[in-house]
Design a protein around this nucleic acid. Structure first.
Lengths: 351, 351
DNA sequence: CGCGATTGGGAAAAGGTTTTCTCAGAGGAG
DNA sequence: CTCCTCTGAGAAAACCTTTTCCCAATCGCG
């Protein structure tokens, strides 16, 4: 197909000087010809272009970067080895940047300060145009100091330094989406089973949960905090359906909004085990929309998606505009979640 | 703590020239002083070192790379967006390289040929010292041609070009580990439930399964091929325990070796649902040791771990030695798996 | 004291590209 | 025919560091 377009698979890359020599011009002229700069006869320009093509010339980025003080490279810091959250973010960032000809240095800093410094130094030495920090929690710092680095920094799905630019998911909004969906479906007694109190998102979502129920005049059951595990989902069902629900009468929940998909999985399994039908008896909504989990529950799980890839994209594009010298308001931007409806909530009463 | 070690957070990085000027020497001398080269009085060397330290001088990698023809950078190609397999591999690679001062370009090529070419070109332009290709299957090529690139290439957990150097997991060995473990525990009727026939590993593992059983004189049940899902695990249990097991008599299996952890999860759930105890009635072993799944099954799942991080490390180190000019035998290296014993198999009869 | 050897340090080239200046020649106008 | 203005293209500096070679000064020895 491209038989003539893949010429010398150069053992040693061909330089501009060689192109110039072969085309019978100076390197200066060759450079200008290939970059569409300067003035010369169309014929000269074309001859140089052709020669470059024939030789398979590709400019040495290192040399270009050195001169332009711009490397078309950014550093991506993460402490998320497991990758469930950072992977979509990274993927989004990468997409946004690659489309703009920018490469990404992947730097896994774990939670190790020494490693963090090592990576930041390496990035700076390699003259990255900017840095994006991402993590597995939006209420924890990466183990690195990114202030006063001399290059723009963007935080994506991790705790930012004050005065920095950050993108995070709108957890409260996501929770509203879920609870309001339950309300629309006519559920009246909506419980909330979520993760440990040490997570900021737990409180943000719980508060949104309370707010929606209060607005709608529905009973608020105190959120059940536990761990992010299936096991906790099981246990929570026991508490919800065995225990005497003290203040709010003896009625059992007809819906459970879960803090993540694993909890939801545990909840669904436990409900089935005690003979309750999902969604007919109890509706369940998860959080994270972790596809592999959400699609393996029976029935498949409706879940809140944080749009992490879009968040990454946004972060990448913003960094690029920063690198380009455009100004940007500091602050935290909360990006909306979306509800991915599967079959764990049932259909509207009228539908 | 490091109050004096973080001096001018340079808006514009300080160059060697400035260090030299301030220390009252030439750039040549300054360079030699900082690199431990050349000859000069200890006092001169120390003075230059001090000045550099004080100014926060860090050599410009771009300039160094240009000169040395070595960028201390490698490209990492992957097509695994989801990351379950490639993430540990990448993590291992990254660790191995970072410890050696080498940075990693992350390049997600999806299954898009155009994207692949884009990334490879960008990497080559940026003069990476080498390339590592990794993927989600060891029997599929990445959508890129990595032959005759002029830089060393290593394949890790993806299908290599002929004559290349590749690291993959020893799937047959891993399967042996599992089946032999069952044998040691006194299980006699061991079934194998695995993924689709289109995967090479399915056949490799199935053959090892057959081999071990034959060696031990145990009955071989034809492996059940399906999908990599929990649902298939459920269904397979139905086939195994309802159906008339044609040739091998009516006996039910007392052990199931599963092709991955999700299948195992489905198998365990299905067994429990039909009142069979794991591990007392039936032992189960999974594959992949996907922690989040293996620890969520009840009981926790014994599983074969492919040691992907170690595989990545190995690949990274090998690439480094290649870059360093050391020769290496082409061919495919199979790295051993290990069995992670949890509670889904029970204890030995004597223990 | 003279000569060779050693020592401390600098000048310059190299690496590949971009960009600014400069310049020779051609063309046109007067 | 002369002068001015373009036009096309090249020389050279710049980016920053490393390394090779070189030189001046000092030292030691006879």
């Amino acid at each position: 197909m491209v038989s003539d377009a893949s010429p010398a698979p150069a053992k040693t890359p061909v330089t501009l000087r060689e192109v110039a020599a072969l085309a019978g011009v100076s390197v200066a002229t060759a450079s200008k010809a290939l970059n569409g700069q300067g003035r010369m006869t169309a014929e000269t320009r074309e001859r140089i272009r052709e020669t470059a093509q024939r030789l398979g010339f590709r400019p040495n980025s290192l040399a270009q970067s050195l001169l332009r003080r711009r490397s078309f490279t950014v550093g991506l810091l993460t402490n998320d080895t497991y990758g469930r959250f950072s992977l979509p973010v990274m993927s989004g960032i990468s997409d946004a940047l690659v489309d703009n000809g920018v490469s990404v240095f992947l730097c896994n800093v774990e939670d190790d300060q020494r490693l963090g410094q090592l990576h930041v130094d390496a990035m700076l030495d390699k003259r990255v145009d900017g840095i994006i920090a991402t993590g597995k929690r939006i209420d924890r710092h990466l183990p690195v100091d990114l202030s006063n680095l001399g290059v723009p920094v963007i935080y994506a799905f991790t705790q930012p330094d004050p005065g920095a630019i950050a993108f995070v998911s709108d957890d409260a909004g996501g929770a509203r989406l879920a609870v309001e969906h339950f309300c629309r479906l006519g559920r009246r007694r909506i419980a909330h089973v979520t993760g440990p109190a040490s997570f900021a998102v737990v409180h943000a979502r719980a508060q949104a949960y309370r707010d929606v129920l209060t607005e709608k005049g529905l009973p608020v059951m105190e959120p059940l905090l536990g761990s992010w595990s299936e096991a906790w989902g099981h246990q929570a069902v026991k508490q919800l359906f065995d225990g005497k629900l003290s203040k709010s009468g003896g009625e059992k929940p007809d819906a459970v909004f879960c803090g993540n998909d694993q909890i939801a999985r545990g909840v669904i399994d436990a409900l089935r085990e005690r003979g309750l039908d999902v969604p007919d008896d109890v509706g369940v909504i998860g959080f994270d929309n972790w596809q592999i989990v959400a699609e393996a529950t029976r029935p498949p799980l409706t879940s809140v998606d944080m749009n992490l890839a879009a968040l990454g994209r946004e972060a990448g594009l913003t960094l690029l505009s920063l690198v380009g010298g455009e100004p940007a308001e500091p602050g935290i931007r909360k990006l909306p979640c979306r509800l991915v409806v599967r079959q764990s909530c049932g259909r509207p009463p009228d539908g």
